[in-house]
Amino acid sequence: MMAIHPTAIVDPGAQLDSSVEVGAYTLIGPHVTIGAGTKVGPHCVIEGHTSIGRDNRFFQFGSIGAANQDKKYAGEPTRLVIGDRNTVREFCTLNIGTVQDRGETTVGDDNWIMAYCHLAHDCVIGNQNVLANGVTFAGHVTVGDWVTIGGLTGILQRMHIGDHAMIGFQAHVAQDVPPFMTVDGNPLAARAVNVVGLKRRDFSAERVGVIRQVYKLLYRSGHTLDEARAAIEGLRGTEGGAADGDIDTMLTFLAASTRGIVR
Rank of each mutant, 00 (worst) to 15 (best):
D55C: 09
D226P: 08
D244M: 07
G144D: 10
N186W: 02
K72P: 11
T249A: 07
V173E: 09
P187M: 07
G197A: 05
I149L: 08
Y25P: 01
M250C: 05
T26R: 07
P12Y: 10
L16E: 04
T252R: 14
V141L: 00
D248M: 04
D55G: 04
A230M: 15
Q128Y: 14
L235K: 03
A14W: 03
T33R: 15
A192N: 13
R207S: 08
L16I: 00
V40M: 01
C44R: 10
G134T: 03
N86S: 10
N95M: 06
Y215W: 07
K71C: 15
F137P: 00
L152M: 15
M250H: 01
D84R: 05
Q213F: 08
N111S: 10
H172G: 15
R85M: 04
G234A: 09
R201F: 02
D184L: 07
H43K: 00
T142R: 09
A165E: 02
E104G: 06
P179N: 01
G48C: 03
K216N: 08
V141E: 05
G108M: 11
T136W: 13
A74G: 14
I28P: 01
L225T: 08
D109T: 11
I28N: 12
E76M: 05
V40P: 04
F203N: 12
G151H: 11
I247F: 02
L225C: 01
G240F: 11
G222K: 10
V81I: 14
V45D: 10
G37K: 04
R191P: 12
T258Y: 06
Q213T: 03
F203C: 03
E21A: 14
Q60L: 14
E233L: 03
I4T: 00
P6Y: 10
I125A: 04
T182G: 01
E21S: 14
E206K: 05
Q60I: 12
A3K: 15
V143D: 07
V135H: 09
G97D: 09
T105R: 05
G13C: 11
M114F: 01
G240R: 12
P178W: 06
V32H: 01
E90W: 11
Y215S: 04
D184E: 15
H31C: 14
Y219C: 04
A74Q: 15
N129Q: 10
R201L: 03
N194E: 02
G48M: 10
M2N: 14
N68R: 07
T258D: 13
D84M: 09
A230K: 15
S221Q: 03
L235N: 06
F91N: 08
V130S: 12
R102W: 02
I161E: 04
H160C: 12
D184G: 01
A66Q: 15
G13P: 04
I149Q: 06
Q69W: 10
G168Y: 00
S51R: 14
H164R: 03
I125F: 05
Q69F: 08
T33L: 13
Y219A: 08
M181L: 00
L251A: 09
T249D: 06
H118T: 11
T38P: 02
F180A: 00
I46P: 04
R57L: 15
V10G: 11
